[in-house]
Design a binder for these strands. Sequence first.
DNA 1: TTGTAAGCGTTATCAC
DNA 2: GTGATAACGCTTACAA
Lengths: 342, 342
Amino acid sequence: MNRRPVTLIDVARAANVSIATVSRALSFPHKVSPETLGRIERTIEALGYVANGSARALASRRSRTIGALIPSLDNPSFATTVHALQRALGEAGYTVLLACHEFDPAAERRLARTLIERGVDGLVLLGTEHEPEVYALIERFRLPYVLTWALEEGGRHTCIGFDNRAAAARLTEHLLALGHRELAMISGMTANNERARERALGVREALRRSGVALDPGRFVEVPYTLQSGRDGLAQVIGQSPRPTAVICGNDLLAIGAIAECHARGLGVPEDVSVTGFDDMEIAAMLSPGLTTMHFPTQELGDLAAQQILRAIAGETVPARQELAVRLVVRGTTAPPRRGAES
Amino acid sequence: MNRRPVTLIDVARAANVSIATVSRALSFPHKVSPETLGRIERTIEALGYVANGSARALASRRSRTIGALIPSLDNPSFATTVHALQRALGEAGYTVLLACHEFDPAAERRLARTLIERGVDGLVLLGTEHEPEVYALIERFRLPYVLTWALEEGGRHTCIGFDNRAAAARLTEHLLALGHRELAMISGMTANNERARERALGVREALRRSGVALDPGRFVEVPYTLQSGRDGLAQVIGQSPRPTAVICGNDLLAIGAIAECHARGLGVPEDVSVTGFDDMEIAAMLSPGLTTMHFPTQELGDLAAQQILRAIAGETVPARQELAVRLVVRGTTAPPRRGAES
DNA sequence: TTGTAAGCGTTATCAC
DNA sequence: GTGATAACGCTTACAA
């Protein structure tokens, strides 16, 4: 029994050709005569040859590997995007190297470096805001990359994502149009997170435009967890007058907030109109009348894959691609009549 | 401006040592004199040297890379496990190569091959049931691996996971003990999925032991999606007499089922006791009185990481490691009194 | 169409 | 402790 893995040389010997020909058969089948090709393929099958990617990468300077640098996989929306990304890249022969920095800039620096060491051909980053060191590395290695989920104004980086600020503003305007005046927001942590920051900003701007105030007590900033959603709701709901609408930074926060409303005997959206961003499919199940801002997270993964593949191929890619978000109105969410409040 | 990446040779030249010494400084710092080490480190910093992983992998036959072969990232439970896995492996200097086969055996074969081509040092598979070809490849390359989420009886493969059958049986027995006699199950697709199959089997066995029948109309097999949960509930709830308890194959199905109950004006768990497996944190928010079987999915990822690292290091690893699941009883879920049913 | 051979950037085995 | 140097398995001009 042979311990040594089968190499190109073995295949070449067995097929009576040079290793160059075998290599060509693998990379450019059309550049090899049909007979030779057939013989080589049969030999490969017979010997069970599996190419050595490291050697390939070393010689060709391409690893057929793409790095995905994201905050976390615990956010189902990110998971969906990464899944779609992996699927699309896989079909193109690329494998995804996963790296989660958990919103820690130092971790992100470290991981970016590691991904580059691993020889990724391209990088898909989540978010537009990154450490200078990260951008410097990418720059120095001339690594094709694409920023996702958010959009960057400067035009310095190619990005594909959502206009988080506009989405938040639109959702807020919708609530205002319905007559809500007492609004609150349960935001995600805005540090190192331009998505959360943009959403908060969008809400604030829309309110300002309408001359509606957002009391400090009605804006809480919490991590993206279910429990934080509950806690956040508990905080803002205590304000007087009670908010009639609560905007949540993402799915998880909204789900937690709705649960807390239920726990307090508050109907959603009859008593409190809870709203939020991202997928919100589950949240809508929790509360069928929900109005939400839906982000096509899967489509984002697919398009990001196309984008990075194009960039690798040296094709020009749109510097800024915005994905449309959709306001999903599932029921009437007008504020409860005055006087009916606690 | 230099287009060529900085190599070991550049570092060696600049530091006035041989490349061997630089290599050593990187891999075995203690085997290099402090002065030399310092000089080399400073040079590396100054030149911005980043190691070439492909070359490293080719020469050392180790890529510092682990493959994660899973069904999907759209299942939040899997995402959590992969996240934990990535985190733990990252701390040990390993990077995760992600591959989702979406329950397609052909895709799994293809992906397993690709991961091996990429030179992964080890493989973490989700589930115990895999194509013979997958096992053959692993075998041929003597690739350290670990199966996760489920447990394998034969002892042929090292695995770490949950006893899905026992968990299902335990949950069922709990329901029976509460007095439920009219049970139904919304199962995941059992083909190529021993987790779903084991859970279904556990339910069936527990029922058989208690002499309770499970009508064919009360067992539906559906994909793991929210909508399937709704549809599944719609199907089983139509049976007469109406089931008093519905066991769902996983989180997503349970959430969908609960939503459908709500839509039908059925209280959960007052009218119908919906239960399920996996994380169930969200499901419990939907319906605070829920009784669920909680699987420590994050811990699984952590432990799987330790396991595969040990295997790579050549240490002996326990062939079979079972993670305890926890029955979480959040409220009384006795069946509604007879006659109160529709 | 096929073969020859020079790398690709490391690691690791020897000497010194 | 350090330095030559032969692999590692493949790609890719360049020749034939």
